[in-house]
Simulated assay, not measured.
Amino acid sequence: MTIYFLGGGNMAEAIAGGLVKQGGYHVHIANRGAEKRERLARELGVQVSEKLPGLSADNVLVLAVKPQDMQAACAGLQTNGALVLSVAAGLSIDTLSRWLGGTRRIVRVMPNTPSKVGLGVSGLFAADGAGEADKRLAQNVMAAVGETVWLENEAQMHAITGITGSGPAYVFYL
């Protein structure tokens, strides 16, 4: 199975690095910047490209683009049934589904900064189109960087986002 990342920023790097360390997955990162791609390939030993190759239903696509850039990044993207994990804060499943041609095989994920060292906690919420096998797969992917917590409803993502985005910064500030 291949896990594709759209975007190679800090969180994508953390998750991809955890997956490489865990083993058992083929990891591919699509990122616009050539210098970043070269560094990711060298340091993580993953396959990289400027654009995503064709996806299939057996793949996982991790959307790791900044929320303000997500709509443009998704333009023309064909998931072809791949399970989509989104780490983009504030973008609802309905919004992502609309930008991805109507797919509902989506799991929103909100990891926190300690994920970079494998000690993170990630909140997850699955769309109605994601089955039990999809949920297990999403949980296994995120277990590569720490613990996981399933949320009862999508509105709870707001609280998780506030905690994961602000909590560590507040502690460091003190």
Score class of each variant (00 low, 15 high):
Glu50Leu: 04
Ser166Glu: 09
Val48Trp: 12
Leu61Ala: 10
Ala72Met: 02
Asn10Thr: 07
Pro114His: 00
Gln47Ile: 08
Glu132Asn: 11
Met110Gln: 07
Phe172Gly: 02
Ala127Met: 01
Val20Ser: 05
Trp99Asn: 04
Ser49Arg: 10
Ala82Pro: 00
Asp94Met: 03
Val65Ile: 13
Ser92Trp: 14
Ser86Val: 05
Val121Lys: 01
Leu96Glu: 02
His26Gly: 14
Gln156Gly: 05
Met110Asp: 01
Thr161Cys: 01
Asp58Glu: 15
Asp69Ser: 14
Thr103Phe: 00
Arg136Ser: 11
Ile163Asp: 01
Arg104Ile: 06
Ala82Lys: 09
Lys116Gln: 15
Tyr4Phe: 15
Ser97Cys: 14
Ala72Asp: 15
Arg37Tyr: 10
Gly54Ala: 15
Gln71His: 11
Val141Arg: 05
Ala41His: 12
Ala127Gly: 15
Lys21Ser: 13
Leu100Pro: 06
Met157Asp: 11
Leu6Glu: 06
Arg136Leu: 12
Val48Leu: 08
Ala12Asp: 12
Ala64Gln: 12
Ala88Lys: 01
Thr103Arg: 12
Glu38Trp: 05
Gly101Asp: 07
Leu63Trp: 11
Gly123Thr: 00
Gln47Phe: 03
Pro111Glu: 11
Phe172Ile: 15
Ser122His: 01
Asn31Ser: 13
Ala127Trp: 00
Asn140His: 12
Arg104Trp: 02
Lys66Gly: 07
Arg98His: 13
Gly24Asn: 08
Val60Ile: 11
